[in-house]
Simulated scan of single mutants.
Amino acid sequence: MSESTEQAQTTESLWREFRQEPFPDSLRHATFGGTDAWLLELDIAGCVLRWLDNSGPLDSKYSVLLQSRIEDLDRVIPEIDDPAGTQYCRRLQQLAVLASRNLSSTK
């Protein structure tokens, strides 16, 4: 199996799991360094969906946005008190990192 095929399968599997998981109550009104937690999720989810729909790399606009949101999560995750919120954000971060890799995928 090629690296790009494995990346696509892993991302699709994590995306399905992520979509079934509710947004944690502890993050609903949380703001970290001026960034709302729900906005991090919205931006990352949009980029991951674009990556999945296009079966491959993001254009530069979305790559920059996604990299910025990965950096935001790097700062945010240590600040989260709730284990469910931490787990949710770690999965979101994992999806973001997978979609940020510049590999083309095949379905």
Rank of each mutant, 00 (worst) to 15 (best):
E6A: 12
Q7I: 07
Q7W: 01
Q7F: 04
A8W: 01
A8V: 07
T10Y: 02
T11S: 09
T11Y: 00
L14V: 04
W15E: 08
R16P: 00
E17L: 13
E17R: 12
E21N: 12
E21Q: 15
F23S: 07
F23M: 08
P24G: 06
P24D: 09
S26M: 06
L27R: 04
R28N: 07
H29M: 09
H29V: 04
H29N: 12
T31Q: 13
G33T: 05
T35W: 06
D36I: 00
A37W: 03
A37C: 09
A37V: 04
L39F: 06
L40H: 03
E41G: 06
L42I: 03
L42Y: 11
D43L: 11
A45R: 11
A45T: 11
G46H: 03
G46E: 12
V48P: 03
L49D: 15
L49W: 03
R50S: 12
R50K: 14
W51N: 11
W51K: 13
L52P: 00
D53L: 12
D53P: 00
N54Q: 14
S55K: 11
G56H: 02
P57K: 14
L58K: 08
D59I: 02
S60K: 12
S60M: 11
S60Y: 06
K61Y: 08
K61C: 07
K61D: 13
Y62S: 10
V64C: 04
L65Y: 00
L65S: 12
Q67F: 01
S68G: 15
R69T: 02
R69F: 00
E71H: 11
E71I: 08
D72F: 07
L73S: 09
D74W: 06
R75G: 10
R75D: 15
R75Y: 10
V76S: 09
P78E: 12
D81G: 10
D82H: 02
P83I: 01
P83H: 04
G85K: 06
T86K: 14
Y88I: 05
Y88H: 12
C89H: 09
R91Q: 15
Q94D: 12
A96W: 01
V97W: 02
V97C: 00
V97M: 11
V97I: 14
